[in-house]
Design a protein around this nucleic acid. Structure first.
Length: 568
RNA sequence: GCGAGCGUAGUGUAGUGGUUAUCACCGAGCGUUGCCAACGCUUGAACCCGGGUUCGAGUCCCGGCGCUCGCACCA
C-alpha cells in the first residue's frame, strides 16, 4: 500500500474537484456504485455503459503491451481456487484467521486465541493441527463457558466457499490474485515454450479480497480487476535487456530508505539500486504502458519496498505509484519472487516444477565409494536398512569393514564387509534441473483506470461557464467517434445516420449518433465522455459529401470528404 | 471492527413536526436557430431501507445499509 506521507504531497488533494469528477462519472455512466438499487455494497463498483468499454480497452492494451515481448502468452485460470493451492502459496497463513463458532451461544472466536495457553505459538499451526489441538483441549467459550466448537474455518481476507455440494464439497477460496494460475500451469507453459526460458504468461481477471474496511472509491475494492505477468527466468543466465529507449529519461526512484534518486533506469541498474536487470526492464515497460494510457509522466514514481515491508515471497520489489486525487497510490508492483512460488507448489503437490539447464561442457563425475548389498543387508538390518544405505554411501572409498555407523536415534550398528558392495563408475552429466525464478509485474487495473480518468479530467471555462472534458487517449477512449447531424432535416439526418451505420460495421470502432439539443451541447456531451473526434453533417454535406471533423482537445475543425475519413 | 459526521430526482442542492417537497443543471418530445452547454412550449425524475414516537415524520428516536473522516486493518 502506498506510503503517502513519506514524500509529502498528499495534502494537495483537491476534494471539491474530486467530488465534481465523481459526480460526472456517475452521471455519464462511467463509474457507479454497484447494486445501488439495493442500497449499495461497499467495495464493489459498476463500470457503466461507458466505463465498461474503458475497462476492456485498458485490459486489451495491457495484454497487447506484454504479449508484444514475443515470449509471453495469455492464459486464463479459474477464480474459484481449491484450499490447498492457496495454502501452498502462503495465502491461507498470511490472509486468514482460523475461526470456530461456539455451538451453544454462536459466538465466533479465533482458534489460535482460544488455544493461547496450550501451545507456545498457536498462530503458526496449520488448520489440521489447530483442529486436533482444539479437539484435545476443548477450551471453554469466553462468552458462555460451554465447550462445544464447530469445525475450524479459515476466514477473513479471502472469500471462502465450498467447491461442490454436500459431503463431496471441498473447501476453496475466490482467488486473491491471478498469479497462482500461472504457477500451477507451469508444466504446460514449459512445454509450450519448448523448454526454453525465459518466458512469461499473462492473465487479466478478477481477484477478491474481503477487505475489512474498503475506502477511497476505486482504490480499495473487494472485487477488483488485476493483470499480472509471471516471467520465468534462469537465475544463472541473466537476460540482457535493451534500456536504450529510457537512457535519457530520468525516473523518480525512491529507495528502501525513502531517498529520492532521479536517475535513468540503466544507471539505477548499474548502481545496483535496482537489484535485478529484468525488474528494471519491466519498470521501463510499465512506464511506457502508463504513458500510452495517458497517465502524466510527472505523476509517476517508483518506490522500492523497505525490507520489512516486502511481501512474504519477494526479494526485491518496486511499486509504481501514481499521483491523483488520493495522493500517491500504489498501482503496480514489480516483484522479484525468486523461486518461492514454484518451490512451494513443488513441496505441497509433490510434483516437479523445474526447468533443465544444459552444461556447456558435460560434467564427468568419478564415483568411487560404497553401497549396500541389498540381498544381504536388507534381511540383516530390516527397518534400519534404508538409513544404513545412506550412511554407507557417504563413507570414504578407503573405509575398511567391519565399521560402525551411528543412526539418528543414537544406536550404533556394525556393518560387515558382506553387507556392502564397492561402487566405481563414471557418470556423465550434461545438465541439471533447477527451479526457475520469477519476476512478476502485477497491475491493479481499477486503480490505473481511476488515474487515467483523474489525469484526463480537465476543467476549464467556456463563455463563463465551467466546462469539463476527459482528454482520454484514443487508445482507451470508450467511444471513438460521434456522428452529429447539424439538423435532422433536408437529408442531413439521413446522411448522418448512414455514416453512423457504416461506422458501426467497422470492428473495434464504437460510434454514437446524437441529434438532440444544440450542436454545442452535443459537443459538450461528447467531450465529457472523452470522444476524440466529432463528425458533423451540415448543409454543405448535402452538396459535396463532405463533413467537418472536430478534434476534442483543441476544438479545431477541418472539412473532409466522407470517403477520406481516417477511421473508415 | 470502534468512534464522529452525513444520506432528498441522473447530478448538485433547498427544506421551523403541518397543503401537491424547492431551485438549477440534466433527460425526453415539439418548434425555432443553422458549428461549440442559445431560446420557447410540453414533459420526465427524489426524501437510503425497516421499525418506533406522533393526530401528522424528509425533519425526532432506534436498528440496518451506504458515504466521508479519524483509530485499527491493508498478501
Amino acid at each position: 500500500m502506498s506510503n503517502s506521507t513519506r514524500c509529502g504531497d498528499t495534502d494537495m488533494v483537491d476534494d471539491a474537484r474530486l467530488e465534481r469528477l465523481q459526480g460526472m462519472l456517475r452521471q455519464r455512466g462511467i463509474l457507479l456504485p454497484a447494486f445501488d438499487l439495493y442500497g449499495g455494497a461497499k467495495g464493489l463498483y459498476d463500470f457503466g455503459p461507458v466505463g465498461g468499454r474503458l475497462r476492456s480497452k485498458i485490459n486489451q492494451a495491457w495484454l497487447n503491451h506484454w504479449i508484444s515481448l514475443g515470449n509471453v502468452v495469455e492464459i486464463s485460470s479459474p477464480t474459484v481456487t481449491p484450499y490447498e493451492v492457496l495454502e501452498a502459496s502462503g495465502h491461507v497463513g498470511e490472509f486468514s484467521d482460523f475461526m470456530t463458532q461456539c455451538g451453544e451461544c454462536g459466538e465466533a472466536s479465533r482458534a489460535d486465541t482460544l488455544l493461547e495457553n496450550h501451545h507456545p505459538n498457536p498462530d503458526s499451526l496449520n488448520i489440521g493441527d489447530l483442529q486436533s489441538l482444539l479437539d484435545e483441549v476443548s477450551p471453554n467459550c469466553p462468552a458462555c463457558g460451554s465447550a462445544s466448537w464447530s469445525p475450524i474455518e479459515a476466514q477473513n481476507l479471502m472469500f471462502s466457499t465450498t467447491i461442490g455440494a454436500g459431503e463431496s464439497g471441498r473447501p476453496g477460496f475466490m482467488r486473491p490474485e491471478t498469479a497462482q494460475g500461472m504457477f500451477t500451469m507451469f508444466p504446460a507453459l514449459y512445454r509450450h515454450f519448448r523448454e526454453q526460458l525465459p518466458f512469461g504468461a499473462v492473465q487479466v481477471g478478477k481477484g477478491y479480497r474481503n477487505e475489512i474496511s474498503p475506502r477511497q472509491g476505486m482504490i480499495r475494492l473487494r472485487e477488483f480487476n488485476m493483470a499480472e505477468m509471471e516471467y520465468f527466468i534462469d537465475p544463472e543466465s541473466q537476460e540482457t535487456h535493451d534500456f536504450s529507449s529510457w537512457e535519457t529519461t530520468p525516473m523518480a526512484l525512491i529507495d528502501g530508505d525513502g531517498n529520492l534518486h532521479n536517475q535513468s533506469l540503466s544507471d539505477a541498474v548499474d548502481a545496483h539500486l535496482i537489484r535485478h536487470q529484468t525488474v528494471g526492464f519491466f519498470m521501463g515497460k510499465t512506464y511506457d504502458f502508463l504513458l500510452n494510457l495517458g497517465i502524466d509522466a510527472d505523476k509517476i514514481r517508483f518506490r522500492q519496498h523497505a525490507p520489512d515491508e516486502m511481501a512474504h515471497y519477494a526479494s526485491d520489489c518496486w511499486d509504481a505509484e501514481l499521483l491523483g486525487s488520493y495522493g500517491w497510490i500504489e498501482c503496480v508492483g514489480i516483484a522479484h519472487r525468486g523461486c518461492y512460488d514454484l518451490e512451494a507448489h513443488e513441496n505441497a503437490s509433490g510434483r516437479t516444477l523445474r526447468a533443465r539447464r544444459e552444461f556447456s561442457e558435460p560434467k564427468i563425475i568419478e564415483i568411487d565409494g560404497w553401497t549396500i548389498d541389498g540381498g544381504v543387508a536388507g534381511p540383516a538390518f530390516r527397518g534400519d536398512a534404508g538409513q544404513v544405505k545412506v550412511l554407507v554411501e557417504s563413507l570414504d572409498s578407503d573405509t575398511e569393514f567391519p565399521t560402525e555407523v551411528a543412526l539418528d536415534d543414537g544406536r550404533t550398528l556394525t556393518v560387515e564387509s558382506e553387507h556392502v558392495k564397492r561402487v566405481q563408475k563414471t557418470v556423465k552429466e550434461t545438465g541439471e534441473w533447477y527451479i526457475p525464478h520469477v519476476v512478476e509485474p502485477a497491475f491493479g487495473i481499477d486503480r490505473i483506470l481511476w488515474h487515467v480518468l483523474d489525469h484526463a479530467y480537465d476543467e476549464s471555462e467556456k463563455g463563463g461557464e465551467p466546462y469539463r472534458m476527459l482528454k482520454l487517449s484514443s487508445l482507451v477512449a470508450p467511444v471513438d467517434v460521434v456522428i452529429l447531424p447539424l439538423f435532422e432535416k433536408d437529408g442531413m439526418g439521413r446522411i448522418a445516420s448512414d455514416l453512423h451505420k457504416r461506422c458501426c460495421l467497422i470492428p473495434n470502432l464504437v460510434s454514437m449518433y446524437d441529434a438532440s439539443g444544440s450542436i454545442g451541447k452535443r459537443y459538450a456531451r461528447a467531450d465529457e465522455i472523452g470522444v476524440p473526434i466529432c463528425i458533423t453533417v451540415d448543409h454543405q454535406s448535402l452538396e459535396d459529401n463532405t463533413v467537418t471533423m472536430r478534434t476534442r482537445d483543441d476544438g479545431s475543425q477541418v472539412r473532409i470528404s466522407i470517403d477520406d475519413l481516417p477511421f473508415l
